[in-house]
Design a binder for these strands. Structure first.
Length: 439
DNA sequence: TCTCTGTTTAGTGTTTCCTC
DNA sequence: GAGGAAACACTAAACAGAGA
């Protein structure tokens, strides 16, 4: 029909007439609606039918919108506190109440910040909103308004003072996700905030935790996750992801929309819930039991720092490492004979391997073309201890049980290395052991 | 889209081990 | 001890992923 009548009004009207004669009212009304024909030109009864049709559509649309809201509630993380407990702070009087609640020793707060996405804009973004979540409520600090007000009153250091007090107090646990990025933006917003990151104490960056959490169930491995970042962590720990629809909205515009307020509050509040759940049962997320102690107060390890660490690790005080853990062995293992000791040597340590063989140790050596990982495979299959050095140690020690991987000091001669290995594993060599493996 | 951070990769120089 | 092979350390660049 559409192609036949085209845009011709007379043909459109005539088609509706024919449909009324040969089909029914409803079909005629639907086509009249499609052509947007004026009511007065419609045949008797079609206009009423059209009105009914439009009413029905409005109801359907409303139901669809309700269902959308419902599915949002069902599919995404929901703030467990009432809307009345979300406070949007624009004045100093209101902010003071926030201070009193937040700056309490032992307090745990979730902190997040929002700024306007800087598409194509050169320069650092300016933070527009700071969200501070407590167990029973969330404070949204309207940063531009508060700074403006403080400046007008000649007390522009008020807010930086509060933020710095919050971050530097080790007795208050600050939870964030990628906190360094937030603090960088904060420093770019107001120079008074620039040292906040350096003074930070009692900070738990869930981005660091995120990397340690055993995220995927076996069936999920190999499939791309639709969620990422904090949303993925929230999904994994709390069961539902965050609704990130408002993430890239304009956070500078005032007033904020209701959706933005709810999003901002959820983003900060979920940190509290994630943290609480991880602390309650760290083992089920593949975390060590001292989650809190290991993370509070330690900023995330930076690339450079890590490199420095590697540098320091190789020449340890004794010139070697054995681990799987950094803990010191309280007492040496019981003495064993070389026959009871079997090892797999990395291909760099062929000299060491030969020495140990001469002393009666069961030694397997990797070939030059073998990958380091093969050592872990052999160690697991044959119950051998891995002898390696340098960077491969970092990889291999995590693939075998604690204490089953030993890092040899490369700067020592092969003979010295052999002595260190024997001493470490308390292998007692007798005269009968020497060359005992030679036929 | 931009920025930041961390990881991977490639290139270069150094070190170690082995053989002769 | 010399020379070659292999691996490591270090650096810079590229890339990926996360944030807003």
């Amino acid at each position: 029909f559409q192609s036949t009548v085209g845009e011709n009004r007379w043909l459109q009207g005539h088609l509706v007439q024919l449909l009324l004669s040969y089909c029914d009212l409803n079909t005629a009304a639907r086509w009249a609606q499609r052509f947007s024909l004026p009511r007065e030109t419609l045949p008797y009864g079609v206009a009423d039918e059209l009105q009914k049709l439009q009413l029905q559509e409005r109801v359907e649309e409303a139901t669809k919108a309700d269902n959308y809201e419902e599915s949002k509630k069902k599919d995404y993380y929901q703030l467990p506190i009432p809307r009345a407990n979300i406070h949007f702070l624009q004045t100093w009087e209101e902010t003071l109440q926030c201070w009193e609640k937040v700056l309490q020793p032992g307090q745990v707060v979730g902190i997040d910040m929002e700024w306007r996405p800087s598409f194509g804009v050169v320069g650092k973004p300016r933070v527009s909103l700071i969200q501070i979540a407590l167990k029973d409520g969330v404070f949204l600090l309207d940063l531009p308004r508060l700074l403006e007000q403080a400046e007008a009153e000649g007390e522009k250091e008020k807010l930086p003072h509060f933020i710095q007090r919050l971050y530097s107090d080790a007795a208050i646990t600050k939870l964030g996700y990628g906190m360094s990025g937030d603090l960088n933006s904060l420093a770019a917003t107001w120079s008074a905030f620039r040292d906040t990151d350096k003074q930070a104490r009692g900070v738990v960056d869930l981005l660091t935790v995120d990397k340690q959490v055993d995220m995927l169930s076996p069936e999920d491995r190999g499939f791309r996750q639709p969620e990422k970042g904090l949303s993925l962590l929230v999904q994994h720990v709390l069961g539902k992801p965050l609704d990130k629809t408002e993430q890239l909205s304009n956070w500078e515009k005032r007033p904020l929309r209701e959706e933005q307020i709810l999003y901002a509050a959820s983003d900060a509040y979920c940190l509290l819930e994630v943290y609480e759940k991880l602390c309650k049962d760290p083992a089920s997320f593949g975390l060590s039991s001292d989650l809190t102690e290991s993370l509070v107060g330690k900023p995330s390890v930076k690339h450079r720092a890590k490199k420095q660490l590697n540098k320091q690790e190789v020449p340890s005080p004794s010139g070697q490492q054995c681990k799987g853990s950094q803990k010191e062995t309280p007492c040496p293992p019981a003495p064993i004979s070389p026959k009871e000791f079997s090892v797999v040597c990395d291909n760099m340590l062929q000299g060491l391997g030969r020495y140990l063989r001469c002393l009666g140790v069961d030694v397997r050596m990797l070939e030059n073309e073998d990958d380091h990982r093969k050592a872990a495979e052999i160690a697991r299959q044959e119950g051998r201890v891995i002898l390696t050095s340098g960077l491969p140690y970092q990889t291999l020690q995590s693939q075998v049980a604690e204490g089953r991987c030993f890092s040899v000091n490369c700067s020592e001669k092969a003979k010295e290395q052999a002595l260190q290995v024997l001493k470490h594993f308390n292998v007692q060599v007798s005269l009968a052991d020497i060359f005992s493996r030679c036929q």
